[in-house]
């Protein structure tokens, strides 16, 4: 295997077992490598298993077939080296914005003053100054996701797993958040796996896009998207190229139901 890869996903298979009914093959023979500080988008129609693949990398689901290695070590459980951001924020609703961000810092046993200053710095970075003591239920969707991203970044993970993080936001907020995420990533690059079903979002954010097929999920194509995103023609061309790939899968996914 090439030495530059931080995440190695090798021939992963996964059966989804619904509470009732027959098991479904969600992922079939998926192999992909993600380089250090690479921004990879996992793109596919809903139900193609892209979130499942992300949860497997996160260590939230047991690996049934194949192998996933992070920094050479097989993944067995979640850990602070792999931070995750969910679509529905999953902030702790009984904790304030600051309390949420402090949670991970308390787990890794930092001194109080250090925790406080790191939390405050992150609150400033994501633009939530003045809302330190607000509860999640008092925030807008975009602010909630900022808080969730800050909470994940607090423990300084090397890898950022993002599960359709902007999927629950309105169109304007989504564009703003995309720009801010890119800024954040450029300032302190991390290895990112970004799950989305939005072609535009994938092209705009990622350096490489993995297009997944409808169920059972496979990697259908890997497309390089590392180019100047200010070049509208190039963005348009890439978008159209990927869209053609995704459209067939989206139609297949619709028929499959």
């Amino acid at each position: 295997m090439s030495s530059g890869a931080e995440i190695v996903i090798e021939r992963v298979r996964h059966l989804y077992k619904p509470p009732r009914g027959a098991p479904v093959l969600a992922l079939d023979d998926v192999s992909i490598e993600v380089g250090k500080r690479e921004f990879l988008a996992l793109l596919g129609p809903s139900g193609c298993g892209k979130s499942t693949l992300l949860y497997l990398v996160g260590g939230f689901l047991p690996i049934e077939g194949g192998a996933i290695r992070v920094d050479g070590r097989p993944v067995t459980e979640p850990g602070p080296d792999r931070g995750i951001v969910f679509q529905n924020f999953s902030l702790f609703p009984w904790k304030s914005v600051k309390g949420n961000i402090l949670y991970g810092l308390e787990r890794i046993g930092l001194a109080r003053a250090e925790r406080e200053s790191r939390a405050q710095a992150l609150i400033d970075v994501v633009g939530l100054s003045g809302f330190e003591n607000s509860y999640p239920s008092q925030l807008s969707g975009g602010m909630k996701q900022r808080a969730a991203i800050a909470r994940t970044l607090a423990v300084d993970p090397e890898i950022l797993l993002m599960d359709e993080p902007f999927g629950a936001l309105d169109a304007q907020t989504r564009i703003i958040m995309q720009t801010e995420l890119l800024d954040l990533w450029r300032r302190s690059p991390k290895t990112v796996i970004f799950v989305t079903h939005d072609v535009q979002e994938a092209v705009l954010l990622a350096e490489r896009v993995a297009v997944m097929s409808a169920r059972p999920g496979r990697i259908k194509a890997l497309i390089d998207t590392k180019f100047d995103k200010n070049d509208e023609h190039l963005v348009k061309a890439k978008h159209d190229e990927i869209w053609t790939l995704v459209r067939d899968e989206a139609i297949a996914a619709q028929r499959g139901r």
């Binding site: 939230f60 979640p78 995750i84 949670y103 787990r107 890794i108 909470r151 994940t152």
Partner: peptide
């Protein structure tokens, strides 16, 4: 379940997840 997952990925142990996450939730 995503609340418990979030806590786990932030380094919480099972007992911490129970008392700090499940109970208040």
């Amino acid at each position: 379940k995503f609340l418990a997952w979030s806590a786990r990925s932030l380094g919480a142990r099972p007992a911490e997840i129970f008392f700090q996450i499940m109970l208040p939730a």
